[in-house]
C-alpha cells in the first residue's frame, strides 16, 4: 500500500519529540514528587497534568493554524495579539450586551478571522514578507484590543463563557478536547481533500503551483484567515480561563510558543511538508517542560534558558546534517 511509505517519514519526524516528551515524563516520575497528583475538588479535577493540558491546549489550538501557515512557507507573528483582540471582543459582548452565547463565540472567532484576512491580504496580494506583514498586527493588535476594552481589564461573571475553560469531560479539560477536535477536523480536511496537498505544494514551490493552475493566493489567504480564527478560539479559551480580558497580557509570547511547537513537531520553517500531530506533541512538550521547571523552583527569569536548550536539542536532532550523520552511523553499523 502506497500510503505506508508516505507516512513513514512522518513517523520518523515524530520520533524525536515523542522521545523527548517520554524522557521528560520519566524524569518527572523519578524526581518531581506530586507531578502526577490529581485530586477531586468541587466536582473538578485539579493537578499538574490537568494544568499542563489546559495550557498546552491553548498553544496547540494556535499551533494548528500556525502549522498550515508555516507549511505555505510563511509565519504568523500576530497570533498573540489576536488572542488579546478576541478575548476583548468576547468580554465586551458578555458585559455590555445581551448577546446569546453562540453569538459571543461567533463574534470572537470572526474578530480572529478578520485579523487573519488582513495578514493574508498583505502576504498573498501585496506579496509582503510574512514576517513583516504579520509584525504589523503583532504590534498594532494589542492597541486594537486596548481600544476595545478602553484600556481596562474587563472582568466578567458569565456562566457559559467561564465554564468553557473551567470544566472537564471524562477527566480531560474542555480546552484539550477543543484542541483535539480541531486537530482531528483539520487533519481530516487536509488529508481527505486536496487541501493538504495544495498547502504543501505552495510552500514547496509557489511559482510552479501558479503554472499548474493552483490558486496560490487563495490558499495563502485561506491559511492566514484560518490561523486568525484559531487564535480567536485560543483567545476565547484564555479569557474564559481567567474570566477576564487583559489586552496587555493575554496571549503574550504565545506566537513564540506556537512557532516552537510547530518546529519541534517537525514542520520545516521553509515550508512544504507539515505534521499536525507533531505540532500537538510539540505544544504538550513545551508546557510539560515549563511546568517541570516551575515545580523545581527554577525562577521565571531563568526558565527560558533550559527551555531554549531543550528546543535546541530537539531541533538539532531534526537538522538534515545531523540526520545524515546518524543514518550513516546506523548503516555502517549494519554493514
Amino acid at each position: 500500500m502506497g500510503s505506508e511509505k508516505r507516512f513513514h517519514p512522518a513517523i520518523m519526524t515524530l520520533a524525536w519529540p515523542v522521545a523527548a516528551l517520554a524522557l521528560l515524563v520519566v524524569f518527572n516520575l523519578a524526581f518531581t514528587p506530586g507531578f502526577f497528583g490529581i485530586e477531586l475538588r468541587d466536582g473538578r479535577f485539579f493537578g499538574t497534568p490537568i494544568d499542563v493540558l489546559n495550557h498546552a491546549a491553548k498553544v496547540a489550538i494556535v499551533a494548528i493554524g500556525m502549522t498550515l501557515v508555516i507549511a505555505t512557507g510563511g509565519v504568523d507573528l500576530s497570533v498573540g495579539a489576536v488572542v488579546a483582540i478576541s478575548g476583548a471582543v468576547a468580554a465586551m459582548f458578555v458585559t455590555r450586551s445581551q448577546a446569546s452565547f453562540p453569538l459571543v463565540i461567533l463574534a470572537a472567532l470572526a474578530a480572529g478571522g478578520v485579523a487573519g484576512l488582513c495578514n493574508g491580504f498583505l502576504v498573498a496580494r501585496l506579496r509582503l514578507q510574512p514576517i513583516v506583514a504579520t509584525l504589523v498586527l503583532m504590534v498594532a493588535g494589542r492597541g486594537v484590543a486596548q481600544l476595545i476594552t478602553d484600556g481596562l481589564i474587563i472582568t466578567f461573571e458569565h456562566r457559559a463563557l467561564s465554564s468553557l475553560a473551567n470544566t472537564a469531560f471524562a477527566f480531560i479539560p474542555i480546552p484539550a478536547w477543543i484542541a483535539l477536535a480541531l486537530a482531528t477536523a483539520v487533519g481530516l480536511f487536509t488529508r481527505r481533500t486536496a487541501a493538504g496537498m495544495f498547502v504543501e505544494a505552495v510552500g514547496d514551490n509557489d511559482r510552479a503551483c501558479r503554472y499548474a493552475g493552483v490558486n496560490d493566493r487563495a490558499i495563502k489567504l485561506g491559511v492566514y484567515a484560518f490561523c486568525g480564527v484559531c487564535a480567536g478560539l485560543a483567545g476565547l479559551v484564555e479569557c474564559s480561563y481567567i474570566k477576564a480580558a487583559d489586552a496587555n497580557n493575554a496571549g503574550l509570547f504565545l506566537e513564540l510558543d506556537a512557532i516552537l511547537a510547530v518546529v519541534i513537531g517537525g514542520t520545516s520553517l521553509s515550508g512544504g511538508r507539515f505534521s499536525l500531530t507533531g505540532s500537538l506533541v510539540g505544544a504538550i512538550l513545551i508546557q510539560t517542560l515549563t511546568k517541570t521547571m516551575y515545580m523545581h523552583d527554577v525562577s521565571a527569569d531563568v526558565a527560558p534558558l533550559p527551555k531554549a536548550i531543550a528546543v535546541l536539542a530537539v531541533c538539532t536532532l531534526q537538522s538534515p546534517v545531523v540526520k545524515d550523520r546518524i543514518a550513516g552511523m546506523f548503516s555502517r553499523g549494519s554493514a
Binding site: 504543501e200 514547496d204 514551490n205 511538508r273
Partner: peptide, 9 residues
C-alpha cells in the same frame, strides 16, 4: 523553478 514541486510525490 516553474515546473516541479520538488518535495511533493
Amino acid at each position: 523553478t516553474e515546473g516541479v514541486v520538488p518535495n511533493l510525490s
